[in-house]
Design a binder for these strands. Structure first.
Lengths: 151, 151
DNA sequence: GTCACACCTCAAGTGCACTTGAGGTAAACT
DNA sequence: AGTTTACCTCAAGTGCACTTGAGGTGTGAC
């Protein structure tokens, strides 16, 4: 924990590729943490760069910040995560991502087989199929509609 | 265009699986169209069910309504789309979806190889890699951050 | 000393994809 | 005749992931 390798918010922003307000926002949301120096400025440990990288990676495949936060909660906050810590997160995300990729493949294939063929029989069509709880999750944009999540 | 097989908004909602206000909302956004009966109520042609199905399918793989609207704009509004019309849309989406699936696979594999191994060298790491235009698309939630879209 | 610069807080705004609510009409059942 | 049902319009609210703005502090360079 040598003082000299803590990072200022500007450097974190620059090196992680997000804006300065976004770094503050992520801290507010509990995705990252910081200490303060004598003047009240945030000081970040190096591993927040990795945490932010993980946040961005999670967003890339459609996770919300809350969900990402749960995954990050499995990592230690006080000391730099070990390789084993990261591997655990990586493994669990790998599984979730694979499931989502497969769901997308099903939608894609359903699209060609069903829309392409022109059948669209209400019962059998995977595109038409909507019998699950649609619009049953409250307002706001649907990042991953329920249908993409089921088996 | 016999009068008897036009649908009321309630039936469209029920059969497409979205709420009644959502049907109106989609119409307002130009994703579907309707005529009005003598009493001023919306009357929908059957093929709006397919259009809504396509909207939901598009959302399932992360497209925004504007983008979906562009794709639907390739379909005729005045008469029911032909099989060929749907096939054209299906083909173009298939390609886009495949690209996105591949992008997700890259993120997934980057996640395991990079986070798992603990390297995270700024230049080579696909997870860390953020040099593209992040947060450069204005405010609002990022459904498909720019990074997921590139080759 | 004053200037720029990096940082701070707090409040409000933004875009999306909707939902919710208030207040009303028109036809259909009882 | 009264009620239920289905629909209408217009306005405002909601959750997310941020951004933007106003107004202020601390440190270093000239």
């Amino acid at each position: 924990m040598d003082r000299h390798d803590l990072l200022g918010i500007g450097e974190v922003a620059r090196r992680s590729g997000v804006s300065v307000p976004t770094v503050r926002f992520y801290e507010e949301k509990g995705l990252i943490t910081s200490t303060r120096d004598a003047a009240g400025r945030r000081r970040f440990e190096r591993h927040v760069l990795r945490r932010i990288a993980v946040v961005r990676a999670g967003q890339r495949f459609g996770m919300g910040l809350a969900e990402i936060g749960e995954a990050l909660a499995g990592l230690p906050v006080d000391h730099p995560p070990t390789k084993r810590d990261w591997e655990r997160l990586s493994r669990s995300w790998h599984a979730a991502l694979t499931a989502r990729i497969e769901a997308m493949e099903r939608v894609r294939d359903g699209l060609s087989s069903c829309i392409g063929c022109g059948c669209l029989s209400l019962k059998a069509c995977p595109v038409y199929n909507h019998d699950d709880e649609l619009a049953a999750e409250g307002p706001g944009p649907r990042r991953w509609p329920a249908a993409a999540r089921d088996g």
